[in-house]
């Protein structure tokens, strides 16, 4: 009875995503808790290819020789990874997933498995490829937009990308698809411009905004503009002060509190396991310390204590990215009544 009430109340907190999605995630997490599972995945980060049609300044994901960029995960490999990992949400990233010739089959199969999919795209091909997909509560296009036109085109190192992405978003919204945006912020971001960007994004009819500070990839071309931890907190405090009711975030309320420095968390690197053409990436979506052949091997052979802010690992020192901390925030919400109360308080203060 208490559990039902707990879930129901939680559902009421997050009405920007379908109730079925909230229910699926909530019951999955609570099920793991009841079984005493200490480490479990929340979102599978699936990278079916590394090839991209952009070369963004802050991206360290795509710098490989051509024969690696030409490799693709097959739909069968993608479905097997989703099955093996069991996470209720699958984020399809890359590379640019819409470049993959079988992306529609990959998505169809994951929908059959009842996984909630966030297909991360720069939207350059979205209008052209939209016919391949059918609107579904299981499918969300998560479009990369780092700011208004000037900031976004600068961030992706190509002019005209913002306008193309906005056209794609409008078309997808018009056809009844679920659409969110995902924004990465870097040092030098102007809080007022970011706020104006949030206004503009919500006017496009999207479901919500995902926002995160950029991770300081060692292989990214621009090494000058990654945010340090204190600067991240200050920036998000300024952006999120007097938050507008019209802004909807596809992030947990406690993660937003964390970004503003109101809560201290450590990373949950196993929360978003990553599978790509090399295998299961150790330890997380952002670091590449090796690969495992299976999800089980990843979970059992990764020295998790060596990662995260509190480990003292310099590679983790400034990371506040959602792929590491959103799972911590969700775990906090469900870990205790105190955590749940914090979530309620953070939600009500919006």
């Amino acid at each position: 009875m208490a559990l039902t009430f707990f879930l129901f109340f939680f559902i009421l907190l997050f009405t920007m995503v379908p109730l079925s999605q909230v229910w699926t995630v909530a019951s999955y997490v609570i099920g793991k808790k009841l079984k005493g599972v200490k480490r479990y995945p929340l979102v599978l980060m699936l990278e079916p290819l590394f090839r991209c049609n952009l070369a963004c300044a802050g991206c360290g994901k795509i710098q490989y020789p051509d024969h690696i960029l030409n490799r693709r995960l097959t739909p069968e490999q993608c479905w097997a990874a989703a099955e093996e990992c069991g996470a209720p949400i699958v984020s399809i990233a890359g590379g640019e997933p819409l470049v993959h010739k079988e992306i529609d089959r990959i998505v169809e199969g994951l929908i059959r498995m009842k996984r909630y999919i966030y297909l991360c795209s720069n939207a350059l091909l979205l209008k052209k490829r939209l016919d391949l997909f059918k609107p579904s509560k299981y499918l969300t296009f998560s479009i990369h937009l780092d700011g208004l036109k000037e900031e976004h085109d600068e961030s992706v190192c190509r002019e005209g990308v913002y306008e193309t992405a906005v056209e794609g978003i409008k078309e997808a919204v018009k056809r009844g698809f679920r659409v969110t945006i995902n924004s990465t912020l870097f040092d030098g971001a102007n809080p007022e411009r970011v706020r104006a960007f949030f206004d503009e994004a919500m006017r496009l009819g999207i479901e919500g905004i995902m926002v995160s500070p950029g991770y300081s990839y060692q292989k990214a071309p621009d090494q000058e503009h990654f945010l340090q931890r204190n600067k991240t907190k200050e920036l998000f405090k300024q952006i999120l002060k007097d938050r507008k009711k019209s802004w909807k975030f596809n992030l947990s309320p406690l993660f937003l509190e964390f970004l503003q420095g109101n809560i201290e968390y450590d990373c949950t690197p196993w929360g978003n396991p990553t599978y790509n053409v090399f295998g299961w990436q150790k330890p997380c979506y952002l670091l590449q310390d090796g690969y495992a052949k299976s999800f089980k091997e990843l979970m059992e052979s990764t020295p998790w204590e060596k990662y995260g802010f509190r480990s003292g690992n310099p590679k983790c020192a400034n990371c506040m990215v959602h792929s590491g901390y959103e799972a911590t925030a969700v775990n906090d919400t469900f870990g205790s009544w105190r955590g749940f109360a914090k979530t309620v308080k953070a939600t009500l203060s919006l």
């Binding site: 070369a55 300044a57 360290g60 710098q63 190192c157």
Partner: peptide, 11 residues
């Protein structure tokens, strides 16, 4: 080395 940042320098 594709991570040498040359395309970004050109941009």
């Amino acid at each position: 080395d594709p991570a040498d940042g040359k395309s970004y320098e050109a941009w």
